[in-house]
């Protein structure tokens, strides 16, 4: 069966490249799963976890912020302002950030964005530990 070539590229580094059978992400309109031979597509992503079901390594979760995805043939390219794979996330730091911000004021966009990032990262870290077959 055909495979997807997935590239997860952040502004400051290439986070992941590899073969996958399924990629799931959340666009502004809702969740989407991409399997091989999908029609060409571009979509804006919400700040949310991305699932990459790799061919040899099981499920891989990544926290993606400011993301954008391009699907072309069997290539999926996810561009992101920042992206981390689950095992690169330091839960202690993110928990501290979460505790530090608490409940931000309604007009404090910067704190809200930081809180959102911390939460997404934590949920990614939590997901990968509950999934079996991962490092």
């Amino acid at each position: 069966m055909a495979e997807l070539t997935v590239r997860l590229v952040a502004t400051d580094k290439q986070v992941y490249t590899g073969q996958a059978s399924l990629v799931v992400f959340e666009t502004v309109d809702g969740q989407m799963g991409i399997m091989p031979a999908h029609s060409p597509m571009m979509a804006i992503l919400r700040d949310a976890p991305v699932l990459i079901r790799t061919v040899d390594n099981g499920d891989l979760y990544a926290a993606v912020h400011g993301g954008f995805v391009t699907v072309d043939g069997n290539t999926v390219i996810i561009l992101a302002e920042s992206a981390e794979l689950a095992h690169d996330i330091d839960t202690d730091i993110e928990k501290r950030v979460e505790a530090e911000i608490g409940t931000p004021a309604d007009d404090d966009e910067a704190s809200k964005a930081r809180l959102k990032r911390a939460q997404v990262r934590l949920s990614v870290a939590a997901k990968s530990t509950t999934t079996t077959g991962l490092r």
Binding site: T11, T27, D29, M32, S39, M42, I44, G66, D72
Partner: peptide, 27 residues
């Protein structure tokens, strides 16, 4: 070029991408 689908729409996608490109140039 093959025909692409856009989520939520081609204008919205451009709206999202162009400022990023500006930011990237600064970066």
């Amino acid at each position: 070029l093959p025909l692409y689908d856009f989520e939520p729409g081609v204008e919205a996608v451009l709206d999202d991408l162009l400022p990023r490109f500006g930011t990237h140039l600064v970066y």
